[in-house]
Simulated assay, not measured.
Amino acid sequence: MISIPVLTLKRLPQYLELLYGFEQEGQDTISATRLAELTGVHMTQVRKDISLTGVVGTPKVGHKIKDLIESIESCLNWKDLSSAFLVGVGRLGSSLLGYSELKRKGLNIVAGFDSDPSLAGTLVDGVIVHSMDKFANLCQRMKVHIGILTVPADQAQSTAELMVASGILAIWNFTPTLLQVDENIIVEDVDMSASLAVLSRRLSEKYDHDSKQISKIDNYKNKTDQEKQ
């Protein structure tokens, strides 16, 4: 299996969502140029990304949408449903348990776990919640290798260590904690704080730029009015 760059892996779902829409509209083919226009990704990069999935297009015609969808889904391993355990059934964890799109994209959360004893035995969107003392045994029995971490930050490291000791090989980390685990363990951080920081800064820069532009226009108008007088 070839190694695919992380940035390409992050772009492929963008293409896929567009392709789903075009397929529903009855469109048969699409060009890399069109995908580039819609995503804002350079056309050369789109072509490189698509080529890594193994699909081959037709010159001056483009790619068959059905083939491209199947190729990208296979590349992302979305065709094979992977089982996962989620630890931390708070607001964020509960939301993920109820997010049906995950299953469509190859991830099936088969159980939730929480340190709150009152949650043990309850169902959240059809997924049973267990106490933490059952994690290791169930993980080994069910051969689950993906763990989703949605616990408070001060519990993240110890929970990650429990996951790894129980056989988890990949952790989807929704906490702000930088996990210290063996280098063979795959960790994908979803840092909402970093994302919010980018959003806030860009918004601030936009307001600053717009306010300066407005100020320039006002100054020009005032100067023009004074000259007329």
Rank of each mutant, 00 (worst) to 15 (best):
Q45K: 09
L9V: 08
G147N: 01
F135D: 00
A170M: 13
E205R: 05
K60M: 09
F174I: 03
L102M: 06
D28W: 05
K228C: 08
Q27T: 12
D49R: 02
A84Y: 07
Q180F: 08
K221E: 13
P117T: 04
G93F: 03
G90P: 05
G121V: 00
K10V: 11
L107T: 07
I171T: 00
S166N: 06
T150C: 13
H63N: 07
T159F: 00
G126C: 03
S158Q: 10
D208S: 14
D49V: 04
E161S: 07
L196N: 11
A156V: 02
D80P: 05
T58I: 15
L19W: 03
L203D: 11
K105T: 03
E37T: 09
T150L: 05
Y220H: 12
V89D: 01
D154H: 15
N173W: 02
S204M: 13
D210M: 13
G147S: 02
A36V: 02
F174V: 01
K79H: 10
S158N: 09
V124D: 04
I2L: 11
A153C: 05
E205P: 03
E23L: 07
V190R: 05
L86T: 00
N184L: 07
F135V: 01
K212R: 15
E188R: 15
L203K: 13
G93N: 01
E23R: 15
C75L: 04
R202V: 12
A32Q: 07
S95C: 10
Y15F: 10
I30R: 02
D114M: 03
G98H: 04
R141N: 13
I186M: 12
P176V: 04
L52V: 08
D154P: 07
T175C: 01
T8F: 06
L16F: 05
L178V: 13
N108L: 13
V127K: 02
T175V: 03
T53E: 01
I146M: 00
L196C: 07
D208F: 11
V164K: 04
E17F: 04
H209N: 11
I128P: 02
I146K: 03
A84R: 08
L149I: 07
H42P: 11
R201I: 09
V46R: 02
N219K: 13
R141K: 14
L119N: 01
E161A: 08
T8K: 08
P59L: 06
P117L: 04
E73R: 12
L138Q: 04
C75I: 02
K10F: 11
P13D: 08
V55R: 00
Q226I: 10
